[in-house]
Every structure is written in structure tokens, then in C-alpha cells.
């Protein structure tokens, strides 16, 4: 028991998230929308955990709860054994430096008025790390890590001068510049072409190697999760229906929904070579 507790970085227990629709004067129906229903989940340190589900399954909500963009209606979420639901002030800010997020749409996730340097440097400035010169070298270094090299070429550019893939690399750079312990990647490649997506997957794997980061990879694409992740959780209508290693999920699915998902994956069997 102790072993398990030590190795898990994120622990969710009975987490429920409900949205209460806005009340109107004449609406009788007070039904709540349940985005997540009693979710238990633990993510181990250093692993890439894939959360696979269709739109509306609550997978994005789960990611947003983990970075505290939203608060759960009930249940507890802890990072390394300490509860994050109730964090406030300095301890919340400290938590922010440990957990980062990569968003889906690279065209929306960068502020068009900030240069690449300002965008990536933002977390450093906010967390008050280093002086201007140190921050500059950190940003340049991070640019090289995410494959935007030479870094000087990109340093003073603005998002509108970059392609979708490059923007997403900038977004990844912003997420790793604080060297967080945990990153939530919410469908980071769903807006990008396959050839770009595969490069970003390689980048994520590399980052995991270098920094020993834990990554929650949220996706609707089972094949991508299979490629990237150590373990996969399948989420359906707010419930996690199956969690297992990627190999087992694909090779030996148990839950009927998982089976269905695997069956409808567009297959592609023209044996090459």
C-alpha cells in the first residue's frame, strides 16, 4: 500500500463535477449536467497517462480540474499526497509552478500581442524566477529543447509569424519552462496535420525522458494514445470505464465501450513493403 502511494503523483478520489445550468425565471427543470461522476484515478510518477474519450465524455473537464482551472463539486484531488482542492495564495502559486497545461488550439492559446519570448517567459516572470538575463537564456534554452532552433530566430517573433506546429511547440515550451512535475496535454495535436502531430509526440516523449515529467495526455485518438502512453484510461460519459497498460487496453479490452472504440478505429491494412 505504501509503495503504491509513494509512486503515484496524482490521486483522484470520488471526484464529481457538476455544472448547474443558469437559472432562468421560468425554467422548471433544475437538472444538473454531470461532467464527471465519482472518478477515481491515480497517475504514477514519470508515466504518460492517456485519457481517451469522445467529445462530451468529460475528459477535458478532468484535465482542467487537475490544473485547478476548475474546482470539483465533490471528491479530493491530491498531488504527491497533499490535497490541492483547498490551496490558496502562496501555496496555490507554488502549486502552479509544478503543474502546467498544453491547450488544444495553438491558434487560440498564444496571446497575439506577446512575442514568443514574452509568452515563454511569462511563467518565469509570474513566479519571479531569475533576472532578465537569466530568464532570457532560459527561454532560449527552452526554445532549443522544443526544436525551435536556433532560438534567437524565434525569440522576438510573434505568434502570427509561426505555423500551427511551431505555435504548439511554443505552447509546449511555455508549459515546460518552469520544469513542472506534471503536465496536462489536452488534445495537443488534434488541430494539426499527421506529419506535424507525430513530431510533437516525439517531442513529448523526449521531454519526459529529459525532465522525468509526468504527462496526462488527453485525446480522442486511441492510436495516438497507444503510441505515446504507458497506461490508458478510457472515459465515457463522465466515468472512467477501464484503466490498464496501453498494450492490454488495445490487445485485451474488457469493457464493451473500449471494445467498440477499438472496432471503429479506421483501420488501414495495406501491407507495405
Amino acid at each position: 500500500m505504501n509503495m503504491v502511494k509513494n509512486s503515484s503523483l496524482i490521486q483522484m478520489k470520488g471526484v464529481t463535477k457538476e455544472y448547474i445550468p443558469r437559472k432562468w425565471f421560468f425554467s422548471k427543470d433544475q437538472s444538473r449536467v454531470v461532467a464527471l461522476n465519482e472518478v477515481d484515478l491515480s497517475i504514477k510518477k514519470g508515466e504518460i497517462f492517456g485519457l481517451v474519450g469522445q467529445s462530451g465524455s468529460g475528459k477535458t473537464t478532468l484535465g482542467r480540474l487537475l490544473v485547478r482551472l476548475e474546482e470539483p463539486t465533490s471528491g479530493s484531488i491530491s498531488l504527491k499526497g497533499s490535497l490541492i482542492n483547498t490551496l490558496k495564495g502562496p501555496s496555490l502559486k507554488d502549486f502552479r509552478s509544478k503543474v502546467q497545461m498544453i491547450f488544444q488550439d495553438p491558434y487560440q492559446s498564444l496571446n497575439p500581442h506577446l512575442s514568443i519570448a514574452q509568452t515563454i517567459g511569462e511563467p518565469l516572470v509570474v513566479q519571479g524566477i531569475g533576472n532578465t538575463r537569466q530568464r532570457r537564456s532560459k527561454v532560449l534554452h527552452t526554445l532549443e529543447i522544443v526544436g525551435l532552433s536556433p532560438g534567437q530566430d524565434f525569440y522576438d517573433r510573434y505568434p502570427h509569424q509561426l505555423s500551427g506546429g511551431q505555435r504548439q511547440r511554443v505552447a509546449i515550451a511555455r508549459a515546460i519552462v518552469l520544469e513542472p512535475e506534471f503536465i496536462v496535454a489536452d488534445e495537443p495535436t488534434s488541430m494539426l496535420d499527421a506529419t506535424i502531430a507525430i513530431q510533437l509526440f516525439t517531442l513529448l516523449l523526449q521531454i519526459r525522458e529529459t525532465f522525468n515529467m509526468t504527462i496526462l495526455f488527453i485525446t480522442h485518438n486511441l492510436a495516438a494514445a497507444n503510441y505515446l502512453c504507458d497506461r490508458i484510461g478510457v472515459i465515457h460519459e463522465g466515468c472512467i470505464v477501464e484503466v490498464n497498460t496501453a498494450k492490454k487496453i488495445i490487445g485485451d479490452p474488457v469493457h464493451p465501450y473500449t471494445k467498440k472504440l477499438i472496432r471503429v478505429q479506421p483501420c488501414f491494412d495495406f501491407n507495405r513493403g
Partner: peptide
């Protein structure tokens, strides 16, 4: 390149990173 970067459930070993 296009085929090499396509991920499906059974082709991990064939993936070519462009």
C-alpha cells in the same frame, strides 16, 4: 512520409518520424 506518420493501432514499429 504521410503514411509513415500515420498512427493506427498496429503499426507502431512502422512509424517514420519526419
Amino acid at each position: 512520409t504521410l503514411l509513415g506518420s500515420y498512427l493506427s493501432l498496429n503499426n507502431e514499429w512502422k512509424v517514420i518520424i519526419p
